[in-house]
């Protein structure tokens, strides 16, 4: 029993079910183009045109005769229009007596092919998922755009927050901004304190010879050493590339300060290991105490601690100096 009545013209049926199909005769000439396929070449009557003039068959390779194409019946074909727009298409061929029916569809990314032509949903069979695919691509693109806008705003907010933050992200110590906040508060509240300005020697050489990862490691280790040798109420800051500051709240005794500074200097004389290799740094220290001023001024104390530091540096390796009272 045959399913389709003998002698019935199947073209209207094929046009509905497969609007992108072609019918070709035994010589490879197109005898009919489905309505949507015809829209892809609106200026050309495809009837009578040789299939191999209209398309290049990309896969399987080297197919240029109908017999070779018919040998691939049921298998997946990849074709491309020979003339621009050179839209790529998928195809499947089925013999119909001596003739053949070649059904075609857009290839992924499907929007690239479709956007070259003025097509509407009616140009696709009602069961074809191409239109749903296009819907999904548009919907996902819109959603992704919204997500990306949010991401870039969050990224901007993160950078702004980091700028406002008081923490040095490399060492976890407080930064210069935090120092500028804390010092005036100590003075306003009449709290006695000492500033210890510490600067690493030979740090640039480590960055230059062993790389920035080694330099970063050294800074992190120095921060750890400083935290380990100071009390909980003392605060350590990284205020420049290799510059640190310690604030000792309520500690102004020269002997105690000298002993903390001495421990710091001798500890920093020991090499810091990075990936098994020793990094040799050293430090110099300058100290200013609030009790040496009638009316302590943070900016002046910082300048004085800095001057004491440079006096230390000029005096040799691993030295410390107090700013002279006056």
């Amino acid at each position: 029993m045959t399913c389709i009545a003998q002698g019935t013209d199947v073209t209207p049926l094929l046009d509905t079910l497969m609007p992108m199909h072609l019918q070709i005769d035994h010589k490879g000439r197109i005898t009919h183009a489905g309505p949507t396929l015809a829209k892809l070449r609106p200026d050309r009557d495809l009837r009578g045109v040789c299939l191999f003039d209209l398309f290049e068959v990309l896969r399987p390779r080297a197919i240029d005769r109908v017999s070779a194409l018919r040998a691939q019946a049921g298998g997946k074909l990849q074709l491309r229009f020979a003339q621009p727009p050179k839209t790529a298409l998928n195809g499947v061929l089925a013999p119909l007596g001596a003739a053949s029916v070649l059904n075609l569809s857009f290839r992924m990314p499907v929007q690239d092919g479709v956007s070259d032509y003025a097509l509407s949903a009616k140009d696709f069979a009602a069961t074809d998922l191409t239109v749903d695919m296009l819907y999904l691509i548009e919907a996902k693109t819109a959603a992704m755009d919204a997500s990306q806008r949010l991401n870039s705003r969050l990224q901007g907010a993160k950078i702004a927050a980091e700028e406002r933050a008081f923490t040095d992200t490399l060492t976890g110590l407080k930064n210069r901004r935090a120092m500028n906040n804390i010092l005036p508060r100590l003075v306003e509240n009449g709290i006695e304190f000492s500033l210890m300005h510490l600067d690493l020697d030979h740090f640039k050489a480590i960055n230059d010879t062993m790389g920035h990862a080694a330099g970063d490691h050294v800074l992190q280790e120095v921060a750890r050493i400083m935290a380990g040798l100071t009390r909980e109420e003392d605060t350590a800051f990284r205020i420049g590339g290799d510059e640190f500051l310690l604030i000792f709240q309520g500690m102004t005794d020269r002997g105690k300060l000298q002993s903390v500074a001495g421990r710091l200097l001798s500890r920093l004389e020991q090499p810091i290991r990075f990936k098994g290799k020793p990094c040799h740094v050293s430090a110099s220290i300058g100290i200013a105490r609030s009790v040496d001023y009638g009316k302590p001024d943070p900016a002046r104390m910082m300048a004085d601690a800095d001057a004491a530091l440079y006096f230390s540096k000029r005096s040799g390796r691993a030295r410390l100096h107090f700013h002279a009272a006056g």
Partner: peptide, 8 residues
């Protein structure tokens, strides 16, 4: 008008 692919 509504053309497929025009929104991309």
């Amino acid at each position: 008008s509504f053309e497929l692919g025009a929104g991309l």
